[in-house]
Amino acid sequence: MYETHYHRASSIQDAVKLRQAAGEGKYLSGGMTLIPTMKQRLAAPSDLVDVRQVPEMKGISVSGRTVRIGAATTHFDVASSSELAALCPAISGLASHIGDPHVRHMGTIGGSIANNDPAADYPSAMLALDATIITDRREIAAGDFFTGLFETALEDGELVTAVTFEAPAKAGYQKFANPASRYAMTGVFVVRRDNGDVRVAVTGAGSNGVFRHEGIEAALSAQWSPDALANVTVDPSDLLSDIHADATYRANLVKVMAKRAVAAARAD
């Protein structure tokens, strides 16, 4: 790892100030991606601003069906929140299958979405839940936030502080994990609202990162059932191909994971 300067922020304001004062600085949350990346010398920030212990960025609050999750809330805390399990078990289940127990004790929701790894789980949940990403300076709809592979709408020095969403009537998430890394080779998050609106977001498969699949959304709007997807086709031309799976294989996975996600949502 190249040399770096560590700073611990005590508040959101403090974090932004420390980051502004830094040269090529980066925010550090759980560090479960950033530290390994720095160890491989693929990232070399001059300064790290640690936001893991900023009090106003931690914790889950629920008001009616509105959920707010602080950006520095760990996957473990999301997975073990009983309030969240009662309102939106799909997101609890998603969090409980990220990485391994040690990673879940450190890794945070804010870190995951700010990094926007194309195989990360949370971006699909944010997009399907039509979540709002709250930063130190504004609110960004999930649909505008995820802009490409490891790319987001965040400006230089902008800090994700929380996410909020309305808990839906039904939600489900299923992923086909890479047998070695356990990252999603394809993961699909499905959401159905009381008014019948359906949103479906796919991670791990798109060559430009997380995306919504309108064909699957239309089919599920007409009939909320795994069988509704029998005649849906998934175009492989915009999907990733790598040594683990080519685009046609992933296209099939999108459909299979969507069916399983609907089945899981119906069972909740």
């Binding site: 560590y6 560090g31 530290i35 040690h102 450190m106």
Partner: peptide, 8 residues
């Protein structure tokens, strides 16, 4: 439990 090789 945390991984001390991935924590500063």
């Amino acid at each position: 439990s945390v991984k001390s090789c991935s924590t500063l």
